[in-house]
C-alpha cells in the first residue's frame, strides 16, 4: 500500500505503468484519476485544495486498509495533491490491483467514495469574481451507505 499526499504534480501514465508492472500474481489493475473541472462556461482561475497534515495520511491509510480487508486485492496506491491547481490539472489518483477485475473495480470505487467525504481535504474555487468553498454534496454522503 502506498499513500502520497503532495503539492507536486504526478505523472499519471508513469505511475499507472509502474504500479501495473509490479503486480506479479494479479490479473487486474484499475486506475482512476480526478482532474480540476472548470466552471460551467469557464472562468476558473484555480482550485485551491487545503488539507489537514497528519490526519490526511492517517485517514487515507484507514480507508485503504478497509478496502484491502473487504476485497481480495493486491497492492493499492493513492496519490492526492494539495495547494493551488489549474483547470485540467490532475488532483489525485488511485490504483488497485486484484487477481480478478471485480475486486479491483470495487476497491477503487470504495476508495473514491471515502476519499471524497472522509479524507480531510477542502476545495476552494477561485474565479475572476471571487472565491467559494466547494460544498459537500448529499449524493457523496449517500454514496457511503452503499458499502
Amino acid at each position: 500500500m502506498e499513500i502520497r499526499v503532495q503539492a507536486e504534480p504526478f505523472d499519471f501514465g508513469a505511475e499507472a505503468g509502474a504500479f501495473a508492472a509490479r503486480q506479479a500474481g494479479m490479473g487486474a489493475v484499475v486506475t482512476f484519476t480526478g482532474i480540476v473541472r472548470d466552471l460551467e462556461g469557464g472562468g476558473l482561475r484555480a482550485m485551491e485544495i487545503e488539507h489537514y497534515p497528519g490526519m490526511t495520511e492517517k485517514a487515507i491509510e484507514a480507508i485503504a486498509s478497509e478496502a484491502a480487508d473487504r476485497w481480495h486485492t493486491g497492492d493499492l496506491l493513492v496519490i492526492h495533491r494539495y495547494g493551488p491547481l489549474a483547470p485540467g490539472e490532475m488532483i489525485m489518483m488511485v490504483a488497485t490491483a486484484a487477481p480478478h477485475r471485480a475486486d479491483a473495480f470495487q476497491a477503487a470505487e470504495f476508495l473514491m467514495d471515502f476519499l471524497k467525504s472522509r479524507a480531510p481535504f477542502w476545495k476552494k474555487e477561485v474565479a475572476q469574481d471571487g472565491a467559494d468553498w466547494v460544498a459537500a454534496r448529499d449524493e457523496d454522503e449517500d454514496a457511503l451507505n452503499r458499502w
Binding site: Y52, M92, L115, A119, P120, W122, A135, A136
Partner: peptide
C-alpha cells in the same frame, strides 16, 4: 470535528486529548 486526528462528535470527552480540529464537511477526491 476531529479529536486527535480521528473524526469524532460534539459530545466527545476531551480528557487527555492533544488536538481538536473543526472543519466543514470534506470535499476530497
Amino acid at each position: 470535528v476531529a479529536v486527535d486526528q480521528q473524526l469524532s462528535d460534539f459530545d466527545a470527552p476531551l480528557d487527555g486529548v492533544r488536538e481538536v480540529a473543526f472543519f466543514p464537511p470534506m470535499t476530497g477526491g
